[in-house]
Design a protein around this nucleic acid. Structure first.
Lengths: 323, 323
DNA sequence: ACAGAAGAGGACACAACCTGGCCGCTACTC
DNA sequence: GAGTAGCGGCCAGGTTGTGTCCTCTTCTGT
């Protein structure tokens, strides 16, 4: 089985890779395909000669990209795809959000058209998803309706059950911008037309109405990034409650050593051994204590309350140390 | 100049020829591709090695044909399956755990063999997954290796990088029982053979070794349910496993206020506002920090290392407070 | 059952092709 | 202007692919 034409196989992989991602730096492709960058360039050339429109960006942040409107040869699942598929769908079947059963069926359907080897791969992957919060059921119909509205940029009208359980009297109207999942729940990020502000609605409390309203012009989400927006929205309100005290510090540690321990916050690399950490906790004391877990020098950026908390924590610890 | 690789190009052509027609006699293909029949046979072999299911008919009226699985009955998903598939894979591509890119490719691959209507459905669904923690990358290879071991019930040998970043000297040996995802991270729930206890290992810190060990008989997980087990494990902090540094302190707090936050240790009531706490952590520093989370006066009973850690922590905090 | 059609595949020699390295260029960003 | 990233020529050496020749095996139709 060592007889396969490396080159052709690589070309197919290359196509698959290019299809999966916006921009691929040549170096990354080289690494991924396990060939030299020079060969990647040649491969790209080859694909071009075969008629595939690969556009390229030069300079920093450059890379390759597959142009649109291409007829690709029937690509096959490779092992990684099979694993990804199984993992994703199995998670959906255990942690699901009303789509468990559909996900299970989909997995089965795909399974059927796979070569035996891959089918076996799929079968061996067993994953359990554990959620912090009991997952609220959202019908795929609702998901679909919201998705469609987002995609079509049409004002969504819907009934909404508030957190207290009271159905809002009047149907809400909002410009749907993003469908987001966070911590096992589904949220719609939308511009609430009635309140003239950005809101996140829990999808499981939404009952879409038909027909949808007129089209709208997309607005720019504060923060630019949906992920950032939602993270910011919820950062003070974990499922288990709120984290009202937030602060910012600079740590003398590589970001990579800090990030894994931060569950609710942002870690930003400032240098090889330096990073910025923005996080929150229940109280200033708890926040200071949480930050102190990193065995590194801390520089408090703010706010003053955090500084004070550190001062008190210092006295506590000094006392505990027997002076 | 036009140094187009004949072979690769031919393979692609062959693929599209086979797609376009039911049955191709080898001789015809040879003529069409302008190569000898022998080469056609070799090309077919090559495609087979690349995973394309090409069926062949021998005898008179024989020929080659592209089998199912690549383009045939355009996967008959129903809408719900399509939605589930898109949702699951899109989540995987944004929240991914090292499989984002593979998930994206898988979605594209599936997309290709869908009828136009469903493809549209798939394209409509846009989901963003927001994770609390920057997700640690886990290679699909690791996931696969773990999964395989779980499935085969074979003892897994692996190198493990501890929370502190120190690679454990000796490889660990464990009976893998479940692969779990929780809060955006992957964990292996296993019976640690060396420590003779249940442990949860972070998958991103695992480097599996080959070969795997002998088969094992499944044990019953305390709590029965993986989900319950993992949830219980993590309900306190996100540390897991054994804690080498143990110490004892007396806190000026009611036991009832301390106990809920201690998941690996003992809280003993000493008075209405006083309790003894024995617990452990990965390092003395971490232990001191963990104890300091209680906003109360601390009296270190022992050992001396903990006292020292508190002293150091005090200096750290004082420095952080800007003195 | 037999002949014939068609694919399978081993051997071999020669040519073509690919790859990695090296290097100077160009295009773009900060 | 410096740094990054892609471009592409050139070369040497080893790998691959190809055509040809042959012998088997598997079907089908008579």
């Amino acid at each position: 089985m060592t007889d396969m034409p490396k080159t052709s196989a690589r070309l197919l992989s290359l196509l698959s890779l290019l299809q999966a991602r916006r921009d691929w730096p040549g170096a990354l492709l080289a690494e991924r395909l396990e060939v030299s960058p020079r060969t990647v360039r040649r491969d790209v050339d080859r694909l071009r000669e075969l008629g595939y429109p690969i556009v390229t960006t030069k300079g920093p942040d450059g890379g390759y990209r597959l142009g649109a409107g291409t007829r690709l040869p029937p690509l096959l699942f490779d092992d990684e795809q099979a694993v990804a598929l199984s993992v994703a769908l199995r998670i959906a079947t255990t942690a699901g959000a009303g789509i468990e059963e559909a996900a299970a069926r989909a997995l089965n359907t795909v399974r059927q058209v796979m070569p035996a080897r891959l089918r076996h791969r799929v079968d061996t992957v067993r994953v359990t998803a554990v959620e912090r919060a009991p997952t609220a059921q959202v019908g795929s119909g609702v998901l679909l309706a919201i998705s469609d509205a987002v995609h079509a940029r049409e004002v969504l009208r819907f009934d909404y059950v508030s957190a207290t359980g009271d159905p809002t009297a009047a149907p809400r109207r909002a410009e749907p911008h993003h469908l987001v999942t966070w911590g096992g729940r589904w949220y719609l990020v939308a511009w609430d037309l009635d309140r003239a502000d950005w809101r996140t609605f829990r999808a499981d409390r939404i009952t879409p109405r038909t027909p949808t309203g007129p089209r709208f012009a997309p607005r720019e989400l504060p923060g630019g990034d949906v992920a950032a927006f939602v993270a910011a929205r919820f950062s003070g309100t974990d499922d288990s409650g709120g984290r009202p005290c937030r602060g910012e510090v600079v740590l003398d540690l590589p970001a990579a050593e800090v990030a894994p321990f931060v569950h609710d916050g942002v870690v930003e690399e400032l240098g090889p051994d330096r990073c910025r950490l923005v996080t929150g906790s229940w109280s200033w004391h708890a926040l200071a204590s949480a930050i102190s877990r990193f065995d590194a020098d801390v520089e408090v950026v703010g706010p003053a309350e955090l500084r004070d908390a550190f001062a008190r924590l210092a006295r506590r610890c000094a006392a505990a140390a027997g002076n």
